[in-house]
Amino acid sequence: MLTKRASNNMGSSDLGWLKSKFHFSFAEYYNPHNIRFGALRVINDDLIAPNTGFDTHPHKDMEIITYIIDGELTHGDSMGNENSISRGQVQYMSAGTGVHHSEHNIGKEIERSLQIWIYPDKTGYRPNYGDYRFNWSDRKNKWLHMVSDKAGEAPIKINQDVNIYSLELEKGNKINFEVNEGRQAYLVQIEGTSIINEIELNAQDALEIVEEDILIDGKETSHFLILEMKKEN
């Protein structure tokens, strides 16, 4: 089963320094029929103005992943970590029993990223942070497996049965993705336009996929993120 989530039907917010598109209920956007998708709780498509950002704030019992699309984001936290990442790179944080962190755009260009929150498989984990600088070419016309659970093969491992892949599909190319029985996936069309099983997606649209394989046809060079997970009961 496939369900298109058009970007113009998502929640949005404009704070001046921060412009956001909310895939799920978040902040002032509330839709009782759109709270989560399995273990996936939040995907916010954020634009952060230069020399602004999120000052220090707390998190608890959440797996938090940030995928950079444009610009550069600088992270700092109460565990003593401080690092910057740019396009196609990932930072991840297991908030566990509690952590404080900040995220700032100290560059001269607008920073765009996907902020992702995933429920852990249990509460009370020890907080943890890491980042990974993937080569952009590793996702050209092929799926780059970036995130998995602790038993998986991806370089980033989180406390939940979720796999995250990225892809840049060049115009005219096609690629498959399997979503097996008992599994579901959430695909974000970050950039470009594609046809997926006869459904057209444009930039910032999304697709809910439940137990169905997909074929992606790149009508323009396109950039995707997909989160594959256990099917929600």
Rank of each mutant, 00 (worst) to 15 (best):
M1N: 07
M1T: 14
M1G: 13
L2G: 06
T3Q: 13
R5N: 09
R5I: 12
S7P: 05
N8A: 08
N9P: 02
N9K: 15
M10K: 15
S12T: 07
S12R: 01
S13P: 00
L15H: 15
S20L: 03
F22R: 00
F24V: 04
S25P: 09
S25I: 00
F26W: 02
E28V: 11
Y29L: 05
N34W: 12
R41M: 10
I43S: 01
L47R: 07
P50I: 07
N51W: 07
G53W: 03
H57L: 11
D61N: 15
D61C: 04
E63W: 02
I69Q: 03
G76M: 03
M79E: 11
G80I: 03
E82S: 05
N83P: 00
S86W: 09
R87L: 01
G88N: 00
G88S: 09
Q89E: 15
Q89G: 11
Q89S: 08
Q91N: 14
Q91W: 01
A95Y: 03
G96F: 04
G96V: 00
S102T: 14
E103H: 03
G107H: 04
E109A: 13
Q115E: 11
W117C: 02
D121A: 00
K122H: 13
T123G: 00
T123I: 03
P127H: 13
N128C: 04
Y132H: 15
F134M: 09
F134L: 12
W136L: 11
W136R: 14
D138R: 00
N141M: 03
K142L: 14
W143H: 09
W143E: 13
L144F: 03
H145W: 02
M146F: 07
S148D: 13
S148M: 07
D149R: 03
K150P: 04
A151W: 06
A154D: 03
K157H: 11
I158Y: 00
D161Q: 14
V162F: 05
N163S: 15
S166N: 14
L169G: 07
K171H: 10
K174W: 01
K174M: 05
I175G: 10
I175A: 05
N176F: 08
N176C: 05
N180M: 12
E181Y: 10
E181K: 14
G182A: 04
G182K: 02
A185C: 04
Y186G: 05
L187P: 02
Q189N: 11
Q189Y: 04
E191R: 07
E191N: 04
E191H: 09
T193S: 06
S194G: 06
I196A: 01
N197R: 06
I199F: 13
L201N: 01
N202S: 09
Q204K: 10
Q204D: 12
L207C: 10
I226N: 05
K231Q: 14
K231I: 08
E232N: 15
